[in-house]
Design a protein around this nucleic acid. Structure first.
Length: 332
DNA sequence: CGGAGACCTTGTCA
DNA sequence: ATGACAAGGTCTC
């Protein structure tokens, strides 16, 4: 086990750990003392902290796992999507949209992570109609029940996210039902079986090769995955940075600030869903999903506590409507 | 094709 | 304290 700190060069405006790791993209990161972040990806436990023009990190993995500094640097850099230079985009998005410019002050350095596809498929199935805190505990349970132990740190055992085959096994649905997963237990079990029957890794590999529209369509054939969850997976795990997950936050933002005609709409139909996506793609360009994530962060309640309340934010504070996302499956 | 309800469970707010 | 309501929606009718 390595406990040495490694260094990955990275300017401050290129990466903010708080908004990126705790902004609802991944459910595998926790803030720990001394302003450090502990998270799990690629079957390793990572501890990160910000330093001047760099990220310092530790890697914890089983002794059998290779953790050469070079390989770890590459893995972390890839996970954080550091090949995209935000200084090329933030000014452009700010120029096109004053709302983005406002959000970007607090939410500089927000990055779309390159997350594991399988983990995100099941994490975002859990996310529907649910709170981030509960989603996090459900993802942790999936890892604990069906994943593999990585290591212990300070008396806590960490587990990797399980393979699809583990989730496709008999008895999973009942087991999850008994452990607080509610109706999502069936979605997880059925989707895992659908993927396994479709070839398992082969199905996943083919998904990764598809273009955005095809990948989205295929994801929506799984149970419990509609347009929004499919777009989350496309954006955060398949590199389709034009994908715009239209959730309740983004719908509210769109109706309030960009598309006033939505005001009276009670449900988000497939048509409305796609219109909102097209609107933002038209506004921000090919990396619209990335820009949208900055707006999403700015709308998260947990990030608004330490923010100075302005007349503008307080005015809209309590006006969330009863609008439900109701986009239906695309017909092929 | 669009609308209306149901759905597990937990956190939050009055 | 207790109930209503919302939570990064989706499925079914």
């Amino acid at each position: 086990m390595t406990t040495k700190w490694h260094k990955l060069l990275c300017k401050k405006d290129q990466l903010q750990l708080l908004g990126t790791l705790n902004g609802g993209q991944s459910f595998r990161w926790k803030q720990i003392p001394e302003n450090q972040w502990l998270g799990i990806f690629s079957k390793k436990v990572w501890i990160l902290k910000e330093a001047t023009d760099a990220i310092l990190y530790q890697v914890h993995a089983p002794n059998s796992t290779k953790t050469s500094p070079k390989k770890c640097n590459e893995e972390l850099s890839n996970y954080l999507h550091l090949d995209v230079d935000l200084s090329e985009y933030y000014p452009k998005w700010s120029e096109k949209d004053p709302n983005f410019k406002d959000a970007a002050e607090q939410f500089y350095g927000i990055r779309i992570l390159r997350q594991d596809v399988v983990e995100n498929i099941f994490s975002f199935i859990c996310s529907q109609n649910n709170h981030i805190s509960r989603i996090t505990s459900m993802v942790e349970k999936l890892a604990e029940y069906y994943g593999e132990k990585i290591c212990d740190i300070n008396g806590i055992t960490y587990y990797s996210f399980p393979d699809v085959e583990k989730l496709a096994a008999d008895g999973v649905e009942q087991h999850l039902r008994n452990n607080g997963f509610g109706y999502r237990a069936k979605y997880i079990s059925n989707s895992a079986k659908l993927i396994a029957d479709g070839g398992g890794n082969k199905w996943i590999n083919e998904l990764q090769e598809m273009k955005y529209e095809d990948a989205k369509k295929n994801l929506m054939t799984l149970m419990g995955i509609g347009a929004k969850v499919a777009d989350c997976i496309c954006l955060m795990s398949l590199g389709h940075l034009q994908a715009i997950p239209v959730d309740t936050h983004i719908y509210q933002i769109a109706a309030r600030l960009y598309m006033p005609k939505l005001g009276k709409q009670k449900t988000v139909t497939e048509k409305i869903y796609n219109e909102i996506g097209e609107f933002f793609r038209d506004l921000y360009g090919p990396l619209a999903g990335w820009a949208h994530t900055v707006l999403f962060c700015a709308d998260l309640k947990k990030f608004q506590d330490n923010k100075v309340e302005t007349a503008k934010t307080s005015k809209h504070k309590k006006q969330d409507s009863k609008t439900k996302i109701n986009s239906k499956k695309l017909k092929t």
